[in-house]
Design a protein around this nucleic acid. Structure first.
Lengths: 217, 217
DNA sequence: TTGAAATGATAGTAATACTATCTTTAATAA
DNA sequence: TTATTAAAGATAGTATTACTATCATTTCAA
Protein backbone atom coordinates (compact mmCIF):
# COMPACT_ATOMS: atom_id res chain seq x y z
CA UNK A 1 0.00 0.00 0.00
CA UNK A 2 1.12 3.50 -0.92
CA UNK A 3 2.21 5.16 2.31
CA UNK A 4 0.79 8.52 1.25
CA UNK A 5 -2.64 7.02 1.87
CA UNK A 6 -2.23 6.98 5.63
CA UNK A 7 -0.39 8.75 8.42
CA UNK A 8 0.18 5.59 10.41
CA UNK A 9 -0.13 2.19 8.74
CA UNK A 10 -3.46 0.78 9.97
CA UNK A 11 -2.47 -2.81 9.25
CA UNK A 12 0.40 -2.64 11.71
CA UNK A 13 -1.59 -2.08 14.93
CA UNK A 14 -4.70 -3.41 16.60
CA UNK A 15 -6.36 -0.02 16.68
CA UNK A 16 -5.54 0.48 13.02
CA UNK A 17 -7.19 -2.82 12.09
CA UNK A 18 -10.25 -1.90 14.15
CA UNK A 19 -10.46 1.40 12.30
CA UNK A 20 -10.46 -0.42 8.95
CA UNK A 21 -12.92 -3.12 10.01
CA UNK A 22 -15.47 -0.84 11.63
CA UNK A 23 -14.86 1.98 9.17
CA UNK A 24 -15.90 -0.32 6.34
CA UNK A 25 -18.98 -1.45 8.24
CA UNK A 26 -20.06 2.10 9.04
CA UNK A 27 -19.55 3.43 5.52
CA UNK A 28 -21.40 0.47 4.11
CA UNK A 29 -24.26 0.84 6.58
CA UNK A 30 -24.90 4.57 6.51
CA UNK A 31 -23.11 5.80 3.41
CA UNK A 32 -19.96 7.83 3.04
CA UNK A 33 -21.63 11.23 3.45
CA UNK A 34 -22.94 10.50 6.92
CA UNK A 35 -19.77 8.73 8.00
CA UNK A 36 -17.63 10.68 10.49
CA UNK A 37 -14.49 9.91 12.45
CA UNK A 38 -16.36 10.74 15.63
CA UNK A 39 -18.98 8.05 15.02
CA UNK A 40 -16.24 5.60 14.08
CA UNK A 41 -14.28 6.43 17.23
CA UNK A 42 -17.35 5.87 19.41
CA UNK A 43 -17.99 2.56 17.66
CA UNK A 44 -14.56 1.20 18.45
CA UNK A 45 -14.08 2.83 21.84
CA UNK A 46 -11.39 5.31 20.97
CA UNK A 47 -11.43 9.05 20.35
CA UNK A 48 -11.65 11.15 17.22
CA UNK A 49 -8.02 12.15 17.66
CA UNK A 50 -7.16 8.49 17.72
CA UNK A 51 -8.55 7.99 14.23
CA UNK A 52 -6.89 11.14 12.94
CA UNK A 53 -3.53 9.61 13.84
CA UNK A 54 -4.15 7.04 11.11
CA UNK A 55 -5.88 9.01 8.37
CA UNK A 56 -5.73 12.67 7.38
CA UNK A 57 -9.47 12.73 6.72
CA UNK A 58 -12.32 10.49 5.74
CA UNK A 59 -11.77 10.95 2.01
CA UNK A 60 -8.20 9.67 2.33
CA UNK A 61 -9.58 6.73 4.26
CA UNK A 62 -12.02 5.99 1.43
CA UNK A 63 -9.17 6.10 -1.09
CA UNK A 64 -7.22 3.77 1.19
CA UNK A 65 -9.93 1.13 1.43
CA UNK A 66 -10.71 1.28 -2.29
CA UNK A 67 -7.01 0.93 -3.11
CA UNK A 68 -6.93 -2.00 -0.70
CA UNK A 69 -9.86 -3.56 -2.56
CA UNK A 70 -8.25 -3.19 -5.97
CA UNK A 71 -4.99 -4.67 -4.72
CA UNK A 72 -6.84 -7.58 -3.18
CA UNK A 73 -8.80 -8.11 -6.41
CA UNK A 74 -5.63 -8.02 -8.48
CA UNK A 75 -4.25 -10.78 -6.29
CA UNK A 76 -7.46 -12.75 -6.70
CA UNK A 77 -7.36 -12.22 -10.46
CA UNK A 78 -3.77 -13.43 -10.62
CA UNK A 79 -4.72 -16.48 -8.59
CA UNK A 80 -7.72 -17.44 -10.70
CA UNK A 81 -6.26 -16.67 -14.13
CA UNK A 82 -2.63 -17.79 -13.91
CA UNK A 83 -3.41 -21.21 -15.36
CA UNK A 84 -5.60 -19.85 -18.15
CA UNK A 85 -3.79 -19.30 -21.44
CA UNK A 86 -6.69 -18.36 -23.69
CA UNK A 87 -7.15 -14.57 -23.43
CA UNK A 88 -10.86 -14.92 -24.16
CA UNK A 89 -11.26 -17.21 -21.17
CA UNK A 90 -9.15 -14.85 -19.10
CA UNK A 91 -11.44 -11.97 -19.98
CA UNK A 92 -14.50 -14.00 -19.08
CA UNK A 93 -13.01 -14.88 -15.72
CA UNK A 94 -12.16 -11.23 -15.13
CA UNK A 95 -15.68 -10.10 -15.91
CA UNK A 96 -16.96 -12.74 -13.56
CA UNK A 97 -14.64 -11.61 -10.77
CA UNK A 98 -15.60 -7.97 -11.31
CA UNK A 99 -19.33 -8.40 -11.50
CA UNK A 100 -20.30 -11.19 -9.16
CA UNK A 101 -21.01 -10.97 -5.46
CA UNK A 102 -17.94 -11.02 -3.28
CA UNK A 103 -17.82 -13.22 -0.21
CA UNK A 104 -15.76 -12.34 2.83
CA UNK A 105 -12.19 -13.58 2.60
CA UNK A 106 -11.59 -15.18 6.01
CA UNK A 107 -7.83 -14.82 5.73
CA UNK A 108 -8.15 -11.08 6.29
CA UNK A 109 -9.97 -10.78 9.61
CA UNK A 110 -9.68 -6.99 9.67
CA UNK A 111 -11.46 -6.51 6.32
CA UNK A 112 -14.88 -7.71 5.28
CA UNK A 113 -14.49 -7.96 1.52
CA UNK A 114 -18.20 -8.41 1.00
CA UNK A 115 -18.98 -5.06 2.66
CA UNK A 116 -16.01 -3.53 0.91
CA UNK A 117 -17.39 -4.64 -2.44
CA UNK A 118 -20.66 -2.87 -1.65
CA UNK A 119 -18.71 0.28 -0.86
CA UNK A 120 -16.88 0.04 -4.18
CA UNK A 121 -20.24 -0.15 -5.93
CA UNK A 122 -21.91 2.74 -4.13
CA UNK A 123 -18.99 5.03 -3.27
CA UNK A 124 -16.15 3.92 -5.52
CA UNK A 125 -16.25 6.72 -8.05
CA UNK A 126 -16.31 9.39 -5.35
CA UNK A 127 -12.63 8.77 -4.70
CA UNK A 128 -11.64 10.40 -7.98
CA UNK A 129 -14.61 12.68 -8.68
CA UNK A 130 -12.98 15.58 -6.86
CA UNK A 131 -11.20 18.81 -7.68
CA UNK A 132 -7.94 17.36 -6.32
CA UNK A 133 -7.96 14.23 -8.50
CA UNK A 134 -4.84 15.27 -10.42
CA UNK A 135 -2.71 15.82 -7.31
CA UNK A 136 -4.00 12.58 -5.84
CA UNK A 137 -3.16 10.86 -9.09
CA UNK A 138 0.37 12.32 -9.04
CA UNK A 139 0.75 10.83 -5.57
CA UNK A 140 -0.13 7.47 -7.15
CA UNK A 141 -3.18 7.01 -4.96
CA UNK A 142 -5.11 5.32 -7.75
CA UNK A 143 -2.32 2.99 -8.84
CA UNK A 144 -4.04 -0.32 -8.00
CA UNK A 145 -7.12 0.69 -10.00
CA UNK A 146 -5.03 1.85 -12.93
CA UNK A 147 -2.92 -1.29 -12.83
CA UNK A 148 -6.00 -3.48 -13.07
CA UNK A 149 -7.32 -1.37 -15.91
CA UNK A 150 -4.00 -1.70 -17.75
CA UNK A 151 -3.97 -5.45 -17.18
CA UNK A 152 -7.45 -5.86 -18.65
CA UNK A 153 -6.46 -3.62 -21.55
CA UNK A 154 -3.53 -5.92 -22.29
CA UNK A 155 -5.74 -8.99 -22.28
CA UNK A 156 -8.12 -7.23 -24.66
CA UNK A 157 -5.18 -6.61 -27.00
CA UNK A 158 -4.21 -10.28 -26.70
CA UNK A 159 -7.68 -11.11 -28.00
CA UNK A 160 -7.48 -8.61 -30.82
CA UNK A 161 -4.30 -6.61 -31.24
CA UNK A 162 -5.95 -4.23 -33.67
CA UNK A 163 -8.75 -3.15 -31.35
CA UNK A 164 -8.45 0.62 -31.01
CA UNK A 165 -9.82 1.28 -27.50
CA UNK A 166 -8.45 -1.32 -25.06
CA UNK A 167 -8.08 0.99 -22.07
CA UNK A 168 -11.40 2.75 -22.52
CA UNK A 169 -13.15 -0.57 -22.95
CA UNK A 170 -11.37 -1.78 -19.84
CA UNK A 171 -12.48 1.16 -17.70
CA UNK A 172 -15.95 0.78 -19.16
CA UNK A 173 -16.12 -2.85 -18.03
CA UNK A 174 -14.90 -2.03 -14.54
CA UNK A 175 -17.24 0.92 -14.04
CA UNK A 176 -20.24 -0.80 -15.56
CA UNK A 177 -19.75 -3.96 -13.50
CA UNK A 178 -20.51 -1.69 -10.56
CA UNK A 179 -22.95 0.82 -11.99
CA UNK A 180 -25.20 -1.81 -13.53
CA UNK A 181 -25.27 -3.54 -10.15
CA UNK A 182 -26.15 -0.30 -8.38
CA UNK A 183 -28.81 0.52 -10.97
CA UNK A 184 -30.29 -2.97 -10.83
CA UNK A 185 -31.01 -2.61 -7.12
CA UNK A 186 -31.67 1.12 -6.88
CA UNK A 187 -32.70 2.54 -10.25
CA UNK A 188 -33.95 -0.53 -12.10
CA UNK A 189 -35.37 1.46 -15.02
CA UNK A 190 -31.79 2.08 -16.12
CA UNK A 191 -31.12 -1.63 -16.65
CA UNK A 192 -32.62 -4.73 -18.19
CA UNK A 193 -32.25 -6.72 -14.97
CA UNK A 194 -34.55 -4.85 -12.64
CA UNK A 195 -37.08 -7.62 -12.19
CA UNK A 196 -34.83 -10.62 -11.66
CA UNK A 197 -32.01 -8.81 -9.85
CA UNK A 198 -29.71 -11.48 -11.15
CA UNK A 199 -26.01 -10.72 -11.30
CA UNK A 200 -25.40 -13.32 -13.98
CA UNK A 201 -27.41 -11.10 -16.32
CA UNK A 202 -24.93 -8.29 -15.76
CA UNK A 203 -22.15 -10.68 -16.62
CA UNK A 204 -23.99 -11.71 -19.79
CA UNK A 205 -24.40 -8.05 -20.74
CA UNK A 206 -20.72 -7.24 -20.13
CA UNK A 207 -19.54 -10.32 -22.03
CA UNK A 208 -21.76 -9.43 -24.96
CA UNK A 209 -20.51 -5.84 -24.87
CA UNK A 210 -16.85 -6.80 -24.73
CA UNK A 211 -16.77 -9.68 -27.17
CA UNK A 212 -18.87 -8.05 -29.84
CA UNK A 213 -16.59 -5.01 -29.58
CA UNK A 214 -13.31 -6.87 -29.90
CA UNK A 215 -14.47 -9.43 -32.44
CA UNK A 216 -12.25 -9.27 -35.51
CA UNK A 217 -14.10 -7.85 -38.47
CA UNK B 1 -39.55 20.57 -13.43
CA UNK B 2 -40.66 18.32 -10.55
CA UNK B 3 -41.74 20.64 -7.75
CA UNK B 4 -40.32 18.33 -5.08
CA UNK B 5 -36.91 19.48 -6.22
CA UNK B 6 -37.31 22.94 -4.77
CA UNK B 7 -39.14 24.81 -2.03
CA UNK B 8 -39.72 27.89 -4.14
CA UNK B 9 -39.40 27.71 -7.91
CA UNK B 10 -36.06 29.39 -8.74
CA UNK B 11 -37.06 30.16 -12.32
CA UNK B 12 -39.93 32.37 -11.18
CA UNK B 13 -37.94 35.08 -9.40
CA UNK B 14 -34.83 37.14 -9.95
CA UNK B 15 -33.15 35.86 -6.81
CA UNK B 16 -33.99 32.30 -7.82
CA UNK B 17 -32.33 32.76 -11.21
CA UNK B 18 -29.28 34.29 -9.56
CA UNK B 19 -29.07 31.26 -7.27
CA UNK B 20 -29.07 28.91 -10.26
CA UNK B 21 -26.64 30.95 -12.33
CA UNK B 22 -24.07 31.52 -9.60
CA UNK B 23 -24.66 28.14 -7.99
CA UNK B 24 -23.65 26.46 -11.23
CA UNK B 25 -20.57 28.65 -11.51
CA UNK B 26 -19.47 27.96 -7.93
CA UNK B 27 -20.00 24.21 -8.12
CA UNK B 28 -18.16 24.08 -11.41
CA UNK B 29 -15.29 26.20 -10.09
CA UNK B 30 -14.64 24.65 -6.68
CA UNK B 31 -16.45 21.32 -6.79
CA UNK B 32 -19.61 20.19 -5.06
CA UNK B 33 -17.92 19.20 -1.78
CA UNK B 34 -16.60 22.68 -1.07
CA UNK B 35 -19.78 24.38 -2.27
CA UNK B 36 -21.90 25.89 0.53
CA UNK B 37 -25.03 28.00 0.60
CA UNK B 38 -23.14 30.58 2.62
CA UNK B 39 -20.53 31.07 -0.09
CA UNK B 40 -23.27 31.21 -2.71
CA UNK B 41 -25.21 33.78 -0.69
CA UNK B 42 -22.14 35.98 -0.34
CA UNK B 43 -21.51 35.69 -4.07
CA UNK B 44 -24.94 36.98 -5.00
CA UNK B 45 -25.43 39.44 -2.15
CA UNK B 46 -28.12 37.65 -0.22
CA UNK B 47 -28.06 35.60 2.95
CA UNK B 48 -27.84 31.88 3.65
CA UNK B 49 -31.48 31.90 4.74
CA UNK B 50 -32.35 33.43 1.39
CA UNK B 51 -30.95 30.42 -0.45
CA UNK B 52 -32.62 27.98 1.94
CA UNK B 53 -35.97 29.43 0.91
CA UNK B 54 -35.38 27.94 -2.55
CA UNK B 55 -33.65 24.65 -1.83
CA UNK B 56 -33.81 22.30 1.13
CA UNK B 57 -30.08 21.63 0.92
CA UNK B 58 -27.22 21.62 -1.54
CA UNK B 59 -27.78 18.02 -2.58
CA UNK B 60 -31.36 18.82 -3.65
CA UNK B 61 -29.97 21.75 -5.57
CA UNK B 62 -27.54 19.46 -7.37
CA UNK B 63 -30.39 17.12 -8.27
CA UNK B 64 -32.34 20.14 -9.50
CA UNK B 65 -29.63 21.40 -11.82
CA UNK B 66 -28.85 17.94 -13.17
CA UNK B 67 -32.57 17.33 -13.81
CA UNK B 68 -32.65 20.70 -15.53
CA UNK B 69 -29.72 19.60 -17.70
CA UNK B 70 -31.34 16.32 -18.72
CA UNK B 71 -34.59 18.07 -19.58
CA UNK B 72 -32.75 20.63 -21.63
CA UNK B 73 -30.80 17.88 -23.41
CA UNK B 74 -33.97 15.95 -24.14
CA UNK B 75 -35.35 19.06 -25.81
CA UNK B 76 -32.15 19.47 -27.79
CA UNK B 77 -32.26 15.79 -28.79
CA UNK B 78 -35.85 16.14 -29.96
CA UNK B 79 -34.92 19.21 -31.96
CA UNK B 80 -31.92 17.65 -33.68
CA UNK B 81 -33.39 14.21 -34.33
CA UNK B 82 -37.01 14.86 -35.25
CA UNK B 83 -36.27 14.89 -38.94
CA UNK B 84 -34.07 11.79 -38.83
CA UNK B 85 -35.91 8.56 -39.64
CA UNK B 86 -33.01 6.10 -39.69
CA UNK B 87 -32.52 4.84 -36.10
CA UNK B 88 -28.82 4.31 -36.74
CA UNK B 89 -28.43 7.96 -37.65
CA UNK B 90 -30.52 8.92 -34.65
CA UNK B 91 -28.22 6.97 -32.36
CA UNK B 92 -25.17 8.59 -33.88
CA UNK B 93 -26.66 12.02 -33.34
CA UNK B 94 -27.49 11.12 -29.77
CA UNK B 95 -23.96 9.94 -29.03
CA UNK B 96 -22.68 13.15 -30.54
CA UNK B 97 -25.00 15.26 -28.39
CA UNK B 98 -24.04 13.32 -25.27
CA UNK B 99 -20.30 13.31 -25.74
CA UNK B 100 -19.34 16.56 -27.38
CA UNK B 101 -18.61 19.87 -25.70
CA UNK B 102 -21.67 21.89 -24.87
CA UNK B 103 -21.77 25.60 -25.65
CA UNK B 104 -23.83 28.03 -23.63
CA UNK B 105 -27.39 28.34 -24.87
CA UNK B 106 -27.99 32.09 -24.98
CA UNK B 107 -31.76 31.69 -24.74
CA UNK B 108 -31.41 30.73 -21.08
CA UNK B 109 -29.57 33.64 -19.51
CA UNK B 110 -29.86 32.19 -15.99
CA UNK B 111 -28.09 28.92 -16.88
CA UNK B 112 -24.68 28.43 -18.42
CA UNK B 113 -25.09 25.08 -20.14
CA UNK B 114 -21.38 24.78 -20.78
CA UNK B 115 -20.59 24.96 -17.04
CA UNK B 116 -23.56 22.76 -16.33
CA UNK B 117 -22.20 20.12 -18.68
CA UNK B 118 -18.92 20.14 -16.77
CA UNK B 119 -20.86 19.62 -13.56
CA UNK B 120 -22.71 16.66 -15.08
CA UNK B 121 -19.35 15.14 -15.97
CA UNK B 122 -17.68 15.63 -12.61
CA UNK B 123 -20.59 15.52 -10.15
CA UNK B 124 -23.45 13.90 -12.06
CA UNK B 125 -23.34 10.47 -10.50
CA UNK B 126 -23.26 11.88 -6.97
CA UNK B 127 -26.94 12.74 -7.27
CA UNK B 128 -27.94 9.08 -7.07
CA UNK B 129 -24.96 7.52 -5.27
CA UNK B 130 -26.57 8.05 -1.87
CA UNK B 131 -28.36 6.00 0.76
CA UNK B 132 -31.63 7.82 -0.02
CA UNK B 133 -31.61 7.07 -3.73
CA UNK B 134 -34.73 4.91 -3.55
CA UNK B 135 -36.87 7.54 -1.81
CA UNK B 136 -35.56 10.19 -4.19
CA UNK B 137 -36.43 7.89 -7.06
CA UNK B 138 -39.93 7.38 -5.71
CA UNK B 139 -40.31 11.14 -5.68
CA UNK B 140 -39.44 11.04 -9.40
CA UNK B 141 -36.40 13.22 -8.95
CA UNK B 142 -34.48 11.32 -11.62
CA UNK B 143 -37.27 11.25 -14.19
CA UNK B 144 -35.56 13.32 -16.91
CA UNK B 145 -32.48 11.11 -16.76
CA UNK B 146 -34.57 7.95 -16.86
CA UNK B 147 -36.69 9.30 -19.71
CA UNK B 148 -33.63 9.94 -21.81
CA UNK B 149 -32.31 6.48 -21.01
CA UNK B 150 -35.64 4.94 -22.04
CA UNK B 151 -35.67 6.96 -25.25
CA UNK B 152 -32.19 5.78 -26.23
CA UNK B 153 -33.20 2.23 -25.31
CA UNK B 154 -36.13 2.47 -27.71
CA UNK B 155 -33.94 3.68 -30.54
CA UNK B 156 -31.56 0.80 -29.88
CA UNK B 157 -34.50 -1.59 -30.23
CA UNK B 158 -35.48 0.15 -33.47
CA UNK B 159 -32.02 -0.72 -34.76
CA UNK B 160 -32.23 -4.31 -33.61
CA UNK B 161 -35.41 -5.48 -31.93
CA UNK B 162 -33.76 -8.67 -30.70
CA UNK B 163 -30.95 -6.96 -28.80
CA UNK B 164 -31.23 -8.14 -25.19
CA UNK B 165 -29.85 -5.18 -23.22
CA UNK B 166 -31.21 -1.91 -24.62
CA UNK B 167 -31.57 -0.10 -21.29
CA UNK B 168 -28.24 -1.21 -19.87
CA UNK B 169 -26.51 -0.29 -23.10
CA UNK B 170 -28.28 3.05 -22.97
CA UNK B 171 -27.15 3.83 -19.41
CA UNK B 172 -23.67 2.65 -20.36
CA UNK B 173 -23.52 5.13 -23.24
CA UNK B 174 -24.72 8.00 -21.10
CA UNK B 175 -22.38 7.28 -18.20
CA UNK B 176 -19.40 6.56 -20.38
CA UNK B 177 -19.88 9.69 -22.47
CA UNK B 178 -19.10 11.51 -19.23
CA UNK B 179 -16.67 9.17 -17.50
CA UNK B 180 -14.42 8.81 -20.52
CA UNK B 181 -14.36 12.59 -20.77
CA UNK B 182 -13.46 12.92 -17.09
CA UNK B 183 -10.81 10.23 -17.37
CA UNK B 184 -9.34 11.74 -20.53
CA UNK B 185 -8.60 15.00 -18.74
CA UNK B 186 -7.93 13.73 -15.22
CA UNK B 187 -6.89 10.07 -15.25
CA UNK B 188 -5.67 9.60 -18.82
CA UNK B 189 -4.26 6.13 -18.15
CA UNK B 190 -7.83 4.87 -18.01
CA UNK B 191 -8.52 5.85 -21.61
CA UNK B 192 -7.03 5.68 -25.09
CA UNK B 193 -7.40 9.42 -25.63
CA UNK B 194 -5.09 10.80 -22.96
CA UNK B 195 -2.57 12.34 -25.33
CA UNK B 196 -4.81 14.00 -27.89
CA UNK B 197 -7.61 14.93 -25.49
CA UNK B 198 -9.93 14.84 -28.46
CA UNK B 199 -13.62 14.41 -27.81
CA UNK B 200 -14.26 12.99 -31.27
CA UNK B 201 -12.24 9.95 -30.16
CA UNK B 202 -14.71 9.34 -27.36
CA UNK B 203 -17.52 9.52 -29.90
CA UNK B 204 -15.68 7.01 -32.10
CA UNK B 205 -15.27 4.68 -29.11
CA UNK B 206 -18.93 4.93 -28.13
CA UNK B 207 -20.13 4.40 -31.70
CA UNK B 208 -17.91 1.37 -32.07
CA UNK B 209 -19.17 0.02 -28.73
CA UNK B 210 -22.83 0.53 -29.55
CA UNK B 211 -22.93 -0.56 -33.16
CA UNK B 212 -20.84 -3.66 -32.71
CA UNK B 213 -23.12 -4.63 -29.81
CA UNK B 214 -26.39 -4.16 -31.64
CA UNK B 215 -25.26 -5.48 -34.99
CA UNK B 216 -27.49 -8.38 -36.05
CA UNK B 217 -25.70 -11.68 -35.88
C1' DT C 1 -54.96 50.63 0.30
C1' DT C 2 -54.44 46.70 1.98
C1' DG C 3 -52.72 42.40 2.14
C1' DA C 4 -49.77 38.71 0.76
C1' DA C 5 -45.46 37.19 -1.03
C1' DA C 6 -40.67 37.79 -1.30
C1' DT C 7 -36.59 39.44 0.60
C1' DG C 8 -33.33 41.32 4.06
C1' DA C 9 -31.18 41.30 8.47
C1' DT C 10 -29.82 39.10 12.38
C1' DA C 11 -29.29 35.44 15.70
C1' DG C 12 -28.68 31.07 17.27
C1' DT C 13 -27.70 25.83 17.50
C1' DA C 14 -25.90 21.20 16.81
C1' DA C 15 -22.78 18.77 14.26
C1' DT C 16 -18.56 18.41 11.51
C1' DA C 17 -13.81 18.56 10.67
C1' DC C 18 -10.29 19.25 12.39
C1' DT C 19 -5.68 20.63 15.85
C1' DA C 20 -3.25 20.71 20.22
C1' DT C 21 -1.58 19.12 24.49
C1' DC C 22 -0.76 16.34 28.22
C1' DT C 23 -0.88 11.78 30.51
C1' DT C 24 -0.72 6.88 30.63
C1' DT C 25 0.38 2.41 28.89
C1' DA C 26 3.05 -0.99 26.44
C1' DA C 27 6.87 -2.72 24.10
C1' DT C 28 11.93 -2.98 23.52
C1' DA C 29 16.64 -2.25 23.79
C1' DA C 30 20.76 -1.15 26.64
C1' DT D 1 16.34 -3.57 35.51
C1' DT D 2 15.82 0.69 33.85
C1' DA D 3 15.54 4.05 30.29
C1' DT D 4 13.52 5.18 25.95
C1' DT D 5 10.07 5.61 22.83
C1' DA D 6 5.90 4.63 20.20
C1' DA D 7 1.10 4.25 20.60
C1' DA D 8 -3.05 5.24 22.72
C1' DG D 9 -6.16 7.69 25.96
C1' DA D 10 -8.17 11.86 27.74
C1' DT D 11 -9.56 16.33 27.28
C1' DA D 12 -10.14 20.79 25.27
C1' DG D 13 -10.70 24.01 21.87
C1' DT D 14 -11.69 26.29 17.10
C1' DA D 15 -13.59 27.43 12.59
C1' DT D 16 -16.86 26.01 9.49
C1' DT D 17 -21.04 23.73 8.00
C1' DA D 18 -25.73 22.98 7.82
C1' DC D 19 -29.23 24.27 9.14
C1' DT D 20 -33.82 26.93 11.83
C1' DA D 21 -36.20 30.94 13.68
C1' DT D 22 -37.82 35.55 13.98
C1' DC D 23 -38.90 40.06 12.80
C1' DA D 24 -38.71 44.00 9.83
C1' DT D 25 -38.95 45.87 5.12
C1' DT D 26 -40.04 46.04 0.32
C1' DT D 27 -42.84 45.02 -3.65
C1' DC D 28 -46.53 44.24 -6.34
C1' DA D 29 -51.14 42.83 -7.35
C1' DA D 30 -56.37 42.78 -6.10
Amino acid sequence: MNDKLFIRDPEKTELGKKIILHGIELINKNGFESFTFKKLAEEIGTTEAGVYRYFENKHRMLIYITAWYWSWLEYKVAFYTNNITDPVEKLKKLIYLLASTVEDDIRTSHVNESSLHQIIIAEGSKVYLTKHVSEDNKDQLFKPYKDLCAKIGDIILECNSSYAFPKSLSSTIIEMAHFQNFFMYNLPALTDFGKEKDESKIIAFLEDLVFSSIKKR
